[in-house]
Design a protein around this nucleic acid. Structure first.
Length: 596
RNA sequence: GCCCCCUUCGUCUAGAGGCCUAGGACGCCAGGUUCUCAUCCUGGUAACACGGGUUCAAAUCCCGUAGGGGGUACCA
């Protein structure tokens, strides 16, 4: 026996793609509400669109939710402890809960029963209109300034004999629900009462010609049969809610509490959509292709890499052809995986839109959840930084806002940086290693023996306080991974020029002077090297900065590195000495002075 | 077109008639600490969309205008 007072919420995505970041927030809110009240949270897959739904998408949605730290009491699930487990293509999808299924495509017999009930009571009827006829009706209605395009009179006046005859002919039909002729009020827990007049209410399709229920019908039946008490969803569903309420009345169902939450947009006000990713990848792709003599070869590469098992983007259902890539570059399709592959090959960042994008970009689930929760909800007071446990204890519908929000990556980045800084050292190290691998950039493995290699420990320690994402160290520390001969010294850079060549090459003089000092450090360690340098500075009556900055430039080619001791530690004595020598050669001043 | 929703610093927001000379966070600017960067600390910048009401008193209530968003599918 279920407790009738307990709150039951659900998250019901369509497995037609990735888990959109907005969907993640909806899931988070529903999860938090259920947890806050000791209720139940259900995951249900709305896969009534047979053409666009896929199992692979289901798997990724499940994995993404689990990665975020969201758990559910009923619905499909994948067992395991890590993202790798959840993303294994052959990991079994298990079912939790008493329902026959939590996939709408497997609940057809349930819908059938209620459809029959509606058909028998006359609250629904078969409609044999062709899509063309309906289009004409819509145009006519618009021309006449009427809100309702569909005139049910003709369909409803069909006799059962006529219907039987049409069915015998094999004429396709849909089932429409007969909307009541009274106004319907949505009692929204966030927006308040919203009343829609009957003149705006149109008979709508509940069974498609392919025999599948529409979203509107399935959602109402499922929410009722699953005992859902609170429906929290995006505001784009508000206008559809009267349909659902009417259906509930006709079926004798209770009405759940509705709470429509504000939408999330890009900073420029546009929708956050996968097209943003396609646009960015296309721009980069076109730019690159322009510089290529042999375009075919490059496209072949993209396709081959896209299929390579070694690549994280490779997914069976995402295989694409060379023609697809060409079409993509021409703007004829927006395939996410082609965008991903192009970006990967070119090393360009794509805007994060889906949950997995944020993961691949090095965001921590904790920071993401925290930021997401603040988009449309806040705990009041000046509290802004909190964890899942806090949400579990404090989330409430009352504090959900009404207005749409713009997604501010700067603020997310700030949250992420704080979260990274607070991570225990070893946790950060392992996450850093993992993300690098997930993102298909396993090149840490080329320089370090593993996440527990002492040099990688030093590397992680160097970058933990200065990483906004787990991907930052790859870029900030790129100089570590270069061959000495690939390091360049840009003397047109004011700082570099000044540090090395000012006062008749003072910086270079320092570099030359510290070579024997560093050479003598044995055994090599960052701390020992720095101590030697400090001692040297003292004898020369110099500040450490006067030595550190030329050295920093010599060993990195840049003016920014982690603290000297860590940098020297990671690089190692031989590389340091080699780079100093290289710098002295490469930074020879021009024959005539730059400063007249 | 029609219907519905929304409107406080650049952004996310606090604010439920006097506590508001409007608070916090991110960003930005300035200063301090520091071997660079980042961190950290200090200070600063910046908003009640507009116009009418109601009231002793309005960011808070009402009406209108403008702007933004959503819906109007055999997609969810």
């Amino acid at each position: 026996m279920t407790d009738r007072s307990a709150i039951v919420t659900r998250f019901a995505p369509s497995p037609t793609g990735e888990l959109h970041i907005g969907g993640a927030r909806t899931a988070l809110f529903n999860w938090a509400l259920a947890r806050r009240h000791g209720g139940k949270f259900i995951l249900r897959l709305e896969d009534t669109d047979r053409a666009r739904s896929s199992e692979a998408s289901t798997r990724r949605i499940i994995a993404d939710l689990k990665w975020l730290g969201i758990d559910w009491d009923e619905g499909p699930d994948i067992e395991g402890d890590s993202l790798e487990d959840w993303l294994k293509p052959d990991a079994p999808i298990v079912k939790r809960g008493d329902q026959e299924s939590y996939f709408q495509s497997e609940r057809l017999d349930i819908y059938r029963r209620y459809i029959d009930q509606l058909l028998e009571s006359g609250r629904a009827y078969k409609c044999f209109k062709t899509p063309e006829e309906l289009d004409a009706m819509r145009q006519a209605a618009r021309a006449a300034g009427k809100a309702i395009a569909y005139d049910p009179a003709e369909s409803r006046s069909l006799t059962s004999a006529q219907i039987a005859a049409l069915e015998a002919q094999g004429r396709p039909y849909v089932v429409r629900f007969a909307m009541p002729d009274h106004a319907i009020t949505v009692r929204d827990a966030v927006l308040g009462d919203v009343t829609v007049e009957p003149s705006q209410l149109e008979d709508f399709v509940i069974v498609k010609a392919d025999g599948f229920p529409t979203f509107h019908f399935a959602v109402v039946v499922d929410d009722s049969t699953m005992g859902v008490t609170h429906v929290m969803r995006g505001q784009e569903h508000l206008a559809n809610t009267p349909k659902h309420i009417a259906l509930q009345e006709a079926l004798g169902f209770d009405h759940p509490v509705y709470a429509h939450i504000p939408l999330i947009f890009n900073p420029d006000g546009s929708k956050m959509s996968k097209r943003d990713k396609a646009k960015a990848a296309r721009a980069a792709g076109r730019e690159h292709v322009r510089s290529l003599a042999e375009v075919d070869g490059w496209i072949e590469d993209v396709v081959r890499d896209g299929r390579s098992d070694a690549n994280y983007m490779a997914r069976p259902e995402s295989a694409f052809s060379e023609a697809d890539v060409r079409a993509f570059l021409d703007g004829k399709n927006d395939h996410t995986h082609i965008a991903g592959m192009i970006a990967f090959k070119l090393g360009v960042p794509l805007p994060e839109i889906d949950t997995a994008d944020f993961r691949d970009s090095g965001y921590l689930p904790h920071a993401l959840n925290n930021y997401l929760a603040l988009l449309g909800w806040n705990p009041g007071g000046d509290v802004e930084r909190f964890d899942m446990e806090f949400l579990r204890q404090n989330f409430s519908i009352e504090r959900i806002g009404k207005s749409n929000a713009k997604f501010d990556r700067e603020k997310l980045l700030a949250f992420n940086q704080e979260a990274i800084a607070k991570l225990p050292e070893s946790e950060f190290r392992h996450q850093l290693w993992n993300v690098n691998t997930w993102a298909g950039r396993s090149w840490y493995a080329r320089y370090f023996d593993g996440p527990d290699d002492p040099l990688f420990i030093a590397f992680a320690r160097a970058y933990q306080p200065r990483s906004r994402t787990l991907r930052d160290p790859e870029h900030l520390g790129a100089f570590f991974f270069k061959k000495t001969e690939d390091i360049t010294y840009d003397l047109s850079d004011k700082n570099i020029h000044k540090t090395l060549l000012k006062n008749d090459g003072e910086g270079k003089g320092v570099l030359d002077a510290i070579r024997p000092i560093l050479k003598a450090v044995d055994p090599w360690s960052g701390a020992a090297a720095q101590a030697a340098l400090e001692k040297f500075a003292e004898t020369r009556n110099l500040k450490l900065g006067a030595i550190a900055q030329p050295l920093r430039i010599a060993i990195s080619g840049t003016t920014v590195t982690p603290p000297l001791d860590l940098t020297l530690e990671i690089l190692g004595g031989p590389a340091v000495l080699h780079r100093i020598q290289w710098c002295l050669i490469q930074s020879s001043p021009p024959t005539h002075s730059l400063n007249p």
